[in-house]
Simulated assay, not measured.
Amino acid sequence: MAVTGPVSAVALTAVPGLLLTAVITSAFLTVDALTPAGTTTEAYAWLIAAVGTGQAAGTALSGTLAEHPPIGAALPSAGAALTLTVLLAAHRHLAVPDATARRRRAPTHAAR
């Protein structure tokens, strides 16, 4: 909404895009560490479905909010504040109790 030309549009989309790889990698590693043995593939599928659903909802919402600039400008900050609130409220439930006691599981194909 604040883009004034193609150069700024590329810059404003490239910066978050550079961080996306780290976020997705962290999400997959977290899923791998927290899922019970034998359910990793299903957990990955849920993660991929959640990301796809979020992207679709964000794309649909951005079209609607483009027609209402004041609301659209405040939405990213509101989303970040909501995310931070949820993470702070749930941090005890999200923490791995004893990371030193965990052992890396062998890949499913190597267990046979």
Rank of each mutant, 00 (worst) to 15 (best):
residue 1 M to C: 09
residue 3 V to M: 10
residue 4 T to N: 13
residue 5 G to K: 06
residue 7 V to S: 07
residue 8 S to R: 09
residue 8 S to H: 11
residue 11 A to S: 07
residue 12 L to I: 10
residue 12 L to W: 14
residue 14 A to D: 05
residue 17 G to H: 06
residue 20 L to G: 02
residue 20 L to Y: 12
residue 22 A to E: 05
residue 24 I to G: 00
residue 24 I to V: 15
residue 25 T to I: 14
residue 25 T to K: 01
residue 25 T to D: 05
residue 26 S to W: 00
residue 28 F to H: 05
residue 29 L to V: 08
residue 30 T to V: 06
residue 33 A to W: 00
residue 33 A to D: 12
residue 34 L to F: 02
residue 34 L to P: 01
residue 34 L to V: 13
residue 38 G to V: 04
residue 38 G to W: 06
residue 38 G to A: 07
residue 41 T to P: 00
residue 41 T to M: 11
residue 45 A to H: 02
residue 47 L to A: 14
residue 48 I to E: 10
residue 52 G to Q: 07
residue 52 G to T: 05
residue 54 G to R: 07
residue 55 Q to T: 10
residue 55 Q to H: 08
residue 56 A to P: 01
residue 56 A to V: 11
residue 56 A to C: 06
residue 57 A to M: 11
residue 60 A to N: 02
residue 60 A to H: 00
residue 61 L to H: 04
residue 61 L to K: 03
residue 64 T to D: 02
residue 64 T to Q: 12
residue 64 T to N: 01
residue 65 L to Q: 03
residue 66 A to Q: 08
residue 73 A to Y: 12
residue 75 L to M: 15
residue 81 A to C: 05
residue 83 T to P: 01
residue 83 T to V: 11
residue 83 T to A: 15
residue 84 L to Q: 06
residue 86 V to G: 02
residue 86 V to R: 03
residue 87 L to C: 10
residue 90 A to G: 06
residue 90 A to I: 04
residue 92 R to Q: 11
residue 93 H to S: 15
residue 94 L to D: 06
residue 94 L to I: 09
residue 95 A to T: 13
residue 96 V to C: 07
residue 97 P to L: 08
residue 104 R to I: 12
residue 105 R to E: 14
residue 105 R to N: 11
residue 107 P to R: 06
residue 109 H to A: 15
residue 110 A to G: 00
